[in-house]
Amino acid sequence: MIVNILVGIGIALFGFALQTSIGGINRKIVGRLQKRHGPRWYQEFIDIFKLLSKRGISHGWIYDFGVIMALGGIIATAMFMPLTVDIVAFKQFDNFFIFVYLLAVGMLGMAMSASGSGNPWASIGVMRALTTMLAYEVPFLIVALTIINVSDSSSLTAIQAFQQTAGNNWFIIALPLGGLVGVLSLMGMLGKKPFETYIAPAEIASGPMVEYGGKQLGMLFILHEISVFIEVSLFVHLFLGGASNIFIFLIKYFTVYTVVNLISNVNGRFKIDQVVKFFYKWPLLLAIIQAFIAIYLGWVI
């Protein structure tokens, strides 16, 4: 058990390092896209360590407790995440629903802490974040339902193994409509434009993060990196066939994150009700059609 927990912590740490580097590289890519130099690839590390080294403020015990609970929840979620078919901390317990719902503990902690700061913008940001969550989760969960029903398991390693068996396609090909919904939901999950309404720096002063500075903000940055790692890996494992070794995982991970980031950088920002309307129109419809086709008719490419 101790070994498993250590492996889990290792995965969480790896995820943090991976996403922080790739996030930095992506900032450089976006810089080039905008005809700029862009920052150093390790800029995100510098930012995080700088924040941790500063002396911030505290608005009372719930403000601190919420941050600890949030980061704890996210680290716990990352510890369950398989990297490849073999590298997984807790074999057969990497249930899909854990990632969706244990992630919510982290989000709840962050929301609690943000509201506890007493700033109305933080509450508005939390409201928007939760509303966005209501928008993207339902189509995503319907596609996940289809995948679990088709692959006959909700364990992520089993879903990876199912896609890697000869004769089975990756789910993004096997369920093309579902794959499209998956990409859109992933963008919502990552809070990329056009779905980054809940951050909106110029409008509600970066939303939930408005009151954070110093180590609390640093911990929220770590939280953000790890949760991006969880969400992108989830997409890789569900739709892109997972990975049989760590290099394939890295390639797929990098591709997914970069593509999503590039799409997001040529978009504007939706209003919050537009986000909800958008997700409950096409993605939900496509997800339901995909589920009908795959489950009732059995048409899986």
Partner: peptide, 24 residues
């Protein structure tokens, strides 16, 4: 595991500089 995660987060929190307490 949730407990482990919270413990790690708590260690990070406690190691860093103490925050300044401000009013709501």
């Amino acid at each position: 595991i949730f407990g482990v995660g919270v413990a790690i987060a708590f260690i990070i929190f406690i190691l860093m500089k103490k925050s300044r307490k401000v009013e709501l």
